[in-house]
Amino acid sequence: MSMINYKYSFTILLAGFFLISCNGKKTENTRENNAENQITISEGQFKENGMELGKPVVKPFTEEVSCKGYITAPVNARAKVTSLISGKITSLQIRPGQFVSKGNVICAITSTEFIDIQKDYAENSAKFVKIKADYDRLKSLREENIGAEKDFISIKSDYNAASASLNAARAKLNSIGLNPANIENGKIYNVYTVTAPISGYVTSISAVLGQYADMTTEIAEIVNVNQTQLTLSVFENDVYRLKPGQIVRFNVAGSTENLLAKLISIGKSINTESKTIDCIANMETSLNKPLINEGYVQANIITAQTELQALPNSAFVKSEGAFFVYILKEKKSGNYIFEKKEVHITKSNDEYSAVSESLPEQETLIKGGSTL
């Protein structure tokens, strides 16, 4: 064999040896990787660690706008208590937080104005009775062409004036809640009672005993907290994702209970300081107890919803910044053989998470994976 052929053959042998060596290492590494991704546990370990198996399920996931706000009462569920009569407050029969029904007494007021209104009605009533009698008498005579026409015209004018004065005096009595029939019978009330204009809870009391009150004096505030709504402050960039009818999930301060409301209106002006827009939502959840007016809430407005395959959050194990699930490959000889698979969570809620990878149909470890 020549020297050239010898060198050529030796080169081929070296190359072949190198390829065999590389293939051997690759096979060995593959076995090691497969071994690292597979975990075998006994049935005793499975039960002892409280492990559970489950399959992927389809669950709804939402896109939401997070915001803050507070509980408010609509205009027809909130009332400022004032007095229609000017006078001195002699008693207050309410306390903060007390529930009052419409018509319940709030306070009592003594007033000469109150007495004068009753006196005015009594005098107008008596005057009208006398003038009406004269009017009826002259009217009857005129129908028989007896008496001067100018006398009838004069009494008719007096009658109309007396009737108008009586009606005005009666309207005053009705406006302050007095029965005109009682005044006509000679009954005069010394104390005027201010009553609740709506049913609700007393949220504030602004008056004190002995204070002079008139129509501009706020005595108390009443709010019907059973008709409360939400005022939500939404950032300008998020408002364009909103529309009436969207569901709002919220909770109040000091509670983790999720309550529901429905968006009914979206504000058209921006608060220049907070850069937010006020949006209003009506309560949807039936409450066992009333909410606190002006109470703080944390809310999420649901703007979209999709259904995805998901696993319980307990199925995901975090390790070195990545998430993994354990998929059951087989069960034999009383042992469970799992494959450890890295996944990337795309959607998540309080109970379930969805991933970008396709989830296999076989059972997955949904509880106890953190012990592996």
Rank of each mutant, 00 (worst) to 15 (best):
I247V: 13
K275W: 09
T285L: 05
E307Q: 14
K331H: 13
K289T: 15
I270T: 07
L260G: 12
Q309I: 06
A261K: 00
F323D: 04
N237R: 12
A304D: 14
K243M: 07
L232C: 05
K331R: 11
I292C: 00
L263G: 02
E320D: 14
G254E: 01
Q305C: 13
L242M: 06
K275H: 14
N313H: 06
K243S: 05
R249Y: 10
K268W: 05
Q309S: 11
L242G: 00
T303E: 04
T272Q: 15
S319C: 04
G245E: 04
K275N: 12
S286D: 12
N271H: 04
I301P: 01
I301K: 00
T231Q: 14
V317T: 11
I327D: 06
V239I: 15
I264A: 00
C279H: 03
T303I: 14
L328S: 10
L291R: 01
N271I: 06
K268F: 01
Q298V: 07
V252S: 07
P244G: 09
F323P: 00
L308T: 12
L328T: 02
L291T: 04
T256L: 07
E257A: 04
T256F: 00
N313F: 01
S314Q: 11
R249H: 04
E257T: 13
G245D: 05
G295C: 05
D238P: 00
A315V: 09
T303F: 09
M283E: 02
A310E: 08
Q229A: 10
Y240L: 08
V234M: 09
S314M: 02
C279R: 09
C279Q: 06
A315E: 01
N293F: 12
L328W: 04
A281R: 03
A261E: 00
V248I: 08
Q298I: 14
E273L: 09
Y296G: 00
E273T: 14
V248F: 05
A281Y: 00
V234S: 01
N300C: 04
F316M: 01
E257L: 03
I301N: 00
A315Q: 04
R241N: 13
R249M: 11
T276S: 09
V317W: 07
I247E: 15
G321S: 03
T306G: 06
S286C: 06
K318D: 09
K268H: 10
C279G: 01
I264K: 07
A299C: 01
R249D: 05
R241W: 06
Y240T: 15
N300Q: 08
F235Y: 13
F316C: 00
G267S: 03
A281H: 10
P290T: 06
Q229F: 12
T276K: 02
N300P: 00
G295A: 15
G254D: 08
A315S: 12
S314L: 06
I247T: 14
T306W: 00
K243N: 07
N271L: 08
I302Q: 03
T228W: 12
A310Q: 11
A253I: 07
V234H: 08
L263P: 02
N282T: 15
I292H: 03
K243E: 09
E273M: 07
R249N: 11
A304S: 14
Y240K: 05
E236F: 08
P312H: 05
D278I: 15
